[in-house]
Design a binder for these strands. Structure first.
Lengths: 231, 231
DNA sequence: AAATGAGTTAAGGAAAAGTTAAAATGTGAA
DNA sequence: TTCACATTTTAACTTTTCCTTAACTCATTT
């Protein structure tokens, strides 16, 4: 069982990023490192993290923008900003986005580690590894509440509907194998459970039918893909 | 009604302390300033504070010692350390005592203010400490008095009714899992205690029935949500 | 075209939740 | 102690929600 805390790290400096990643891994954290602001949020959506460490100065998309996107998906996940700047406005901006801490380079990695520990301890009681919401085209899906919202429209889902949709979201635009879903949700894969799953797919398609960019595609003989065309 | 947040400030530098106190007060905080480490803890025990700002370098008793004493009294109150030093050991020491932040002098007061706000917001969300009252639509609920008021109408609650409503309030618009409630209130989760909880939910719904924007929603198989539409 | 996989709909049964009232428990006053 | 009262649990019954199953149709593969 993997019990380690998962850190989402966005840092464009390749050598520094690599060093930081190794250092954190040595200290028993699981680290997902993205070196490009443009794809950071995409990557975040597809993972389960406990804390985010974001460089502010990035090509394409700065750390604050990414933080804003992340906040929309998860209102509680801790955010820590890294920056070379000591500019007051930047620091203020960071705290306004909901930063949990702010660290200026150059800094001591041991201090960073301490801060991470302090923040995770603070949040420790609650489990933030489960995502609060997933973006699906114009919809937003809240797995805990088991609802999908689109504007003012709200639709509540049954437990299995929600589990299945969650799996599809976690593999957005990638194949979710029948077997995988059957094993995770039904715990087995007999003939009837297979048919049962099809029934749920039908239901999910109905719920998501108002956005033409969303499609739950069937891959004959292997599984389904939740495909979201990026407008 | 005094709704301002109360800051406990320990700083031996008289002129700096006075300036800081005024600045914080201007920003709508209530500030209790102690200029002597020796009496700091005594003063702390006799007050109700939301956050502590402690200078590390103090005559007689240093900030860490005071922090340790405070932690014994209140395990969750946010601690922020002020120091002129940049010594790594000091910073680490601070985080080990449970610091929420660490600020090195000289610093910008505006930044300090932002940090204080960020920390208090954080605590505000996860505030599971005793709150005087909760707003529920047009109602107001006083957990200690065990009453709900709506205009001139007052309704008093039984102990369990109040506990359950408090949990719902603390998770307003979010899921309160059955298990969570059962464990916190009943200490176990057998079949009958489950049914007992349902009985209490029915009662609470009755108490809150006059405001159509309030709803205690059931999430089949997982729990309840106290939903308050913001009209 | 036959065989297999998938889409869809509706019915039936199981489990959870809503509700009400009676029984059990606890608590303070006489 | 006993009685009256408030509180909580248990029980029984109703309603709702959920999942499976079955049946029939449509699509894809060989």
């Amino acid at each position: 069982m993997n019990n380690r805390q998962h850190i989402f790290l966005v840092e464009d400096d390749l050598s520094f990023g690599a060093v930081l990643k190794s250092y954190l891994e040595l200290n028993d954290y699981e680290v997902t490192w993205v070196d490009n602001g443009r794809f950071a949020y995409e990557r975040f959506k597809n993972g389960q993290f406990n804390i985010c460490i974001l460089d502010v100065m990035l090509p394409h998309t700065d750390g604050f923008t990414i933080a804003g996107q992340i906040r929309k998906t998860d209102a509680h996940i801790p955010l820590v900003f890294l920056t070379a700047k000591t500019l007051k406005e930047d620091i203020l901006k960071g705290y306004n986005v909901g930063a949990d801490d702010y660290i200026t380079k150059p800094f001591d990695t041991e201090v960073l580690l301490c801060k991470i520990k302090a923040i995770l301890n603070r949040k420790g009681l609650e489990d933030h590894s489960e995502k609060e919401s997933y973006e699906i085209g114009t919809y937003r899906f809240y797995p805990k509440k088991r609802t999908i919202s689109c504007g003012d429209e709200h639709q509540s889902l049954s437990p299995k509907e929600a589990e299945l949709l969650k799996l599809l979201c976690q593999n957005q635009n990638e194949l979710l194998a029948r077997e995988t879903a059957l094993n995770k949700i039904w715990g087995e894969d007999g003939y009837f459970t297979t048919r049962s799953m099809d029934v749920f797919i039908t239901k999910l398609r109905k719920y998501l039918s108002s956005d033409p960019n969303i499609e739950i595609k069937n891959i004959h003989g292997s599984g389904f893909i939740l495909e979201v065309k990026s407008g």
